[in-house]
Amino acid sequence: MKIAYILPSLVNTGPIVVVNNVVKHLKNKVELIDVYYFNESHSTLHFDCNVFHISKSDTIDFDKYDIIHSHTLWSDVYVYKNRKNIKKAKTVSTIHQDTFTSFTIQFNRFASFFLGHYWCYIQRNFDGVVAISDQLKNRYGKLFSNIKTIYNGCNITDNENIQEDIEKLILSYKEKGYRILGSYAYISKRKGLSQIIDVLSYLPDYVYVIFGEGPYLENLKKKVAKYNLQDRVLFLPYVKAPYSYLKFMDIYMMPSYSEGFGLAMVEAALAKKSIVCSNLPSFHEIFTEKEVSFFEVDNAESLIQAINTAYLEAEKKGELAYIKASSSFTSEIMANNHLLYYQEMVADKHKDI
């Protein structure tokens, strides 16, 4: 089997990490994997396969492949625009988030309606669509007859380099007796990180460490200044393997307003961390209340209670979350499920011949 992945960039964000993990585990199980991407960036992941930088006007040899799997809107648009050049290969798209909800948070309802329907129209022209949760499959199943749930998965290692200056900064808070709340993300409004800053004044024993970059970062910094919390919120830049710093955190925070899955939360579970997350259906699909601490979004009292519970029950919840993640949400399981799906599609193609 020959597979091509079409990506917007090689930046360390959720969809790119997913493909990177799939490649790692499929490269020795298939004949060929090539990755194509559009946007250059200094913050990139290394892929264990052929990687090609292309422009959106370039045309690749599509029928060199059995499967062409694109990720995110503009990659899907690229495949759609070249559909007349694809005679043999099967095309696949992935729904990584609740499209309409995410666009509403990012833009507005008007833009969400038109952009969301445009993307769904494009995906209906694909041979297959992957949903990363049953919640997404159930919501978008009415639009796609060819949709299948494949949960995301990940692995973490202890081999990644830790920057000594960052380690010292975080540990300096520990030495002062603080408990560490932590998050890492592409910082957008959808990630809901501002909710933690809103309640930090009521949690004098805690500091909040945030790794990442993104369009909402300056808003967070302004809010920190507004509440005079500069001494208890630590902003850190993008790092290659942010999960390496989980060992310094007491509680991992996942306060998203919308999320298709929750990959960072699974990484935290694999590190046996206690987790606080928003009360989203997609998060309930991954973990139970025994394994993580849920809170209602934009509810300060609920969030504070969840943080206190997560700290008091940290060892028990961390162990139970680890058991769930390691048995259900590893990158090997995710990659194998992708391969099975690809094989089904190729088999169906041969039936049609």
Score class of each variant (00 low, 15 high):
residue 58 D to Q: 07
residue 95 I to P: 01
residue 285 E to T: 10
residue 244 S to D: 01
residue 178 Y to F: 15
residue 297 V to Q: 15
residue 233 V to P: 08
residue 294 F to K: 10
residue 290 K to F: 12
residue 11 V to F: 09
residue 320 L to Q: 11
residue 201 S to F: 00
residue 183 S to K: 03
residue 45 L to A: 05
residue 275 I to P: 01
residue 235 F to A: 04
residue 75 S to E: 07
residue 21 N to I: 00
residue 272 K to D: 02
residue 313 E to N: 15
residue 76 D to M: 06
residue 322 Y to E: 06
residue 155 N to A: 04
residue 3 I to K: 06
residue 157 T to Q: 03
residue 303 L to P: 02
residue 284 H to P: 05
residue 31 E to H: 12
residue 158 D to L: 12
residue 2 K to N: 14
residue 87 K to W: 00
residue 156 I to T: 11
residue 43 S to N: 12
residue 17 V to K: 15
residue 102 S to N: 11
residue 195 Q to E: 12
residue 309 T to K: 15
residue 279 N to R: 09
residue 306 A to I: 05
residue 44 T to E: 09
residue 130 V to D: 01
residue 133 S to G: 07
residue 147 I to D: 01
residue 336 N to T: 09
residue 132 I to K: 04
residue 21 N to Q: 14
residue 106 Q to Y: 03
residue 329 F to L: 07
residue 152 N to R: 03
residue 36 Y to C: 03
residue 262 G to Q: 06
residue 310 A to E: 07
residue 29 K to A: 03
residue 24 K to E: 09
residue 350 H to V: 09
residue 216 Y to R: 06
residue 39 N to E: 14
residue 197 I to N: 11
residue 2 K to F: 09
residue 10 L to H: 12
residue 305 Q to S: 15
residue 303 L to W: 01
residue 338 H to D: 01
residue 76 D to H: 14
residue 308 N to S: 14
residue 34 D to F: 04
residue 48 D to C: 07
residue 111 A to N: 04
residue 57 S to Q: 13
residue 183 S to T: 14
residue 147 I to A: 07
residue 311 Y to V: 08
residue 37 Y to E: 02
residue 226 K to G: 03
residue 99 T to A: 12
residue 45 L to Q: 13
